[in-house]
């Protein structure tokens, strides 16, 4: 393991940042402050965090409808994120995108995506650009178990393998595509098994173990940087909340949820860092207080920001 102590603390901080952000979004959504609908990343924080700890601002990611965690882990600004969720002018997309379309191209964030399976071809395309330009940047494609069955995912992986593109496909298998369990949607035990069809590495990793995710991602990403082509990493995880806020979750039972809460990635890393004496209770409190302060500021920024002016309705359709 090559993670430095600083990186471990950073990863812990990022995971708590995602968790507090998402929990607050759930409350704000319930209060009617956030229009539309939101898909929260609670429970899956180790995946985005472990992967993005290997990336620089010049690397690309494509995200999903459940994108807040990816954006935060890639360095996204929670003020602009929150303002976007509120539909405000100061949001990442000037209020034109919302939760499912937040992007920050300066950070290589090619957007959350409202289409399941929309991202894989885009990630392969960004990787093609990296290869074409001859730099050692990479693209990472986050996609869910639902997207793993989309034709676009297969097409993008096969093309990436044929062209040895510097892309890493990170599957977040949270066991449910909306309500459809993977027991009904796939006939192999692991999504990573499908890597054999492209002759690329396929790795299964405990998606609730941030360090394990980091290690698996580091290998795939380094491989991609060295021009050795794509890989597929399946992170087994679980979403604590429904597919969307308001989802009654009638398709899964409470016992299953409780079982996965026992494997919550945040207490697990916290415990590890306490044991390693990298963290103390007071340091944890301090981290949480700092994050809470930033989150409150982000919420206030979103609250106080104006809605977009109607005059901008037709702007930004064309360059």
């Amino acid at each position: 393991m090559d993670l430095t102590n600083e990186q471990l603390i950073q990863m812990y901080t990022t995971m708590v940042k995602i968790r507090t952000f998402e929990n607050r979004v759930a409350e704000l959504f319930a209060d009617g402050k956030i229009p539309g609908f939101v898909h929260l990343y609670v429970g899956e924080e180790a995946v985005a965090t472990g992967v993005c700890e290997n990336l620089t601002d010049k690397d690309y990611i494509t995200s999903t409808h459940r994108g807040h965690g990816h954006l935060i882990a890639k360095g996204g600004d929670i003020k602009k994120m929150m303002a976007e969720l509120f539909g405000k002018e100061t949001g990442y997309c000037k209020g034109k995108g919302g939760s499912m379309h937040i992007a920050d191209l300066d950070l290589g964030i090619m957007g959350a995506n409202g289409i399941v399976g929309g991202g894989p071809p885009l990630a392969s395309g960004a990787a093609l650009a990296c290869q074409y330009m001859g730099n050692d940047n990479v693209a990472v494609c986050f996609f869910g178990d639902g997207a793993s069955n989309q034709g676009t995912t297969h097409e993008a992986m096969n093309m990436a393998a044929c062209w040895k593109l510097p892309v890493v496909f990170i599957n977040e298998n949270n066991m449910y595509g909306i309500s459809c369990c993977t027991t009904k949607s796939m006939c192999v035990p692991n999504i990573a098994d499908r890597a054999a069809g492209y002759d690329i590495p396929g790795v299964v990793v405990d998606g609730n173990d941030a360090v394990a995710v980091w290690e698996a991602a580091a290998e795939g990403i380094n491989r991609a940087r060295q021009g050795k082509g794509p890989s597929l990493i399946e992170c087994k995880t679980y979403r604590h909340r429904g597919h969307f806020e308001g989802d009654p979750c009638t398709y899964r039972d409470d016992a299953e949820l409780e079982e996965w809460k026992e494997k919550d990635p945040i207490p697990r890393l916290e415990q590890k860092l306490l044991e390693m004496e990298l963290l103390t209770q007071s340091k944890i409190e301090k981290i949480k207080q700092e994050l809470q302060k930033d989150l409150t500021a982000a919420e206030q920024f979103a609250e106080e920001s104006p809605y977009p002016d109607i005059s901008g309705l037709l702007e930004d359709v064309y360059t």
């Binding site: 690309y60 494509t62 191209l105 090619m110 894989p120 071809p121 885009l122 990630a123 392969s124 395309g125 960004a126 990787a127 093609l128 650009a129 990296c130 074409y132 330009m133 693209a139 034709g151 676009t152 097409e155 993008a156 096969n158 093309m159 044929c162 062209w163």
Partner: peptide, 22 residues
């Protein structure tokens, strides 16, 4: 580039590559 017969990937990789500077 000769591509696979996969129109989604042909169009989609172009979109990704275009947004990344090509």
């Amino acid at each position: 580039k000769d591509t696979t017969i996969t129109e989604s990937a042909i169009v989609g990789t172009a979109v990704g590559a275009a947004s990344a500077g090509l």
